[in-house]
Computed example of a mutant assay.
Amino acid sequence: MSTSTIAPAAPRAHAVPVPAAVLAHRRAVARWALSSGRAAHRDALAAIVAARVHSSADAGLPGSATVWTVEDIGTLLWVELAEWCQDAEVELPEQHQVAATLDTYLRFLSAHRLLASGSDPVAALRRAIADYGGGRSRSHPSMRSRMSAPVVPIARG
């Protein structure tokens, strides 16, 4: 008989109990994403919304009339998500899932006019997702590897 124990998997972010208003907001985002053909990973969405609500000065419904800036994107991706996941004792969602879901979430907020005055343009917010490491790689053109042209000898004649 084996006596080895397997540690139970950490709870998932979407399973963390939240107020009804937060759950309704997440459901609205998920429905909109599905109807729009956009990515919305439920653990990533739960972590994004919870981290934002936790760090936000707004006591109201998450995402309602919230100011989002490029700096907020960096803080969310680099600090707030990890802190919330650690506090909630859940696994941090995959980076690519967070990036895709955050992009969808910002589009949802914009489409429903939930971005408050003072927010950066959605295009700048979406670029920040990539710039802060959540999306496709962005590097200065001089840092990208260059393809060499084939070397063809010149005929002497």
Rank of each mutant, 00 (worst) to 15 (best):
Leu76His: 05
Met143Cys: 10
Ala59Gln: 13
Asp58Arg: 10
Ala30Ile: 03
Ser4Tyr: 10
Val152Trp: 11
Leu81Lys: 01
Pro93Arg: 08
Val79Gln: 14
Trp84Thr: 01
Pro93His: 06
Arg38Val: 03
Trp84Val: 00
Ile129Asp: 03
Val49Phe: 03
Pro8Cys: 14
Gly118Leu: 09
His112Ile: 02
Trp84Met: 00
Val53Cys: 12
Ser137Asn: 05
Ser137Phe: 04
Pro121Lys: 08
Gln95Thr: 08
Leu61Thr: 02
Ile6Ser: 14
Ser137Pro: 01
Gly37Ala: 03
Pro11Ile: 06
Pro62Met: 05
Pro19Gln: 04
Trp78Tyr: 10
Val29Arg: 05
Asp131Val: 13
Asp72Thr: 09
Gly135Ile: 05
Ser110Pro: 12
Ala100Leu: 04
Leu115Thr: 11
Leu61Gly: 00
Leu109Ser: 08
Ala57Ile: 15
Trp78Leu: 09
Val49Gly: 03
Arg27Lys: 15
Ser119Leu: 14
Val70Cys: 08
Trp32Asn: 04
Arg126Thr: 14
Glu83Lys: 12
Gln95His: 02
Thr75Glu: 08
Ala82Gly: 08
Pro62Gly: 00
Tyr132Met: 11
Val151Gly: 13
Arg126Gln: 15
Ser119Trp: 14
Ala24Leu: 00
Val18His: 05
Gly118Glu: 04
Glu89Tyr: 02
Ala10Pro: 13
Ala33Gly: 01
Thr69Ser: 07
Val67Arg: 00
Ser139His: 08
Leu81Gly: 02
Ala40Pro: 04
Ser119Ala: 13
Arg52Val: 01
Gly157Ala: 04
Glu71Thr: 15
Leu23Ile: 11
Ala111Leu: 07
Ala46Leu: 01
Arg27Gln: 15
Leu23Met: 10
Arg42Gln: 12
Val70His: 02
Ser56Val: 06
Ala124Val: 15
Glu91Asp: 13
Trp84Pro: 02
Leu45Thr: 06
Gly157Asn: 07
Trp32Ala: 00
Gly74Pro: 11
Ile6Gly: 12
Glu94Arg: 01
Ala50Arg: 07
Arg107Glu: 12
Ala33Glu: 01
Val18Phe: 09
Tyr132Ala: 13
Thr75Pro: 09
Arg27Phe: 14
Val151Thr: 12
Leu106Gln: 03
Glu71Val: 15
Ala82Ser: 06
Asp120Val: 12
Ala9Gly: 14
Ala7Tyr: 11
Ile6Glu: 14
Glu91Val: 00
Ser36Gln: 08
Thr3Phe: 14
His140Cys: 07
Leu45Cys: 07
Ser142Trp: 12
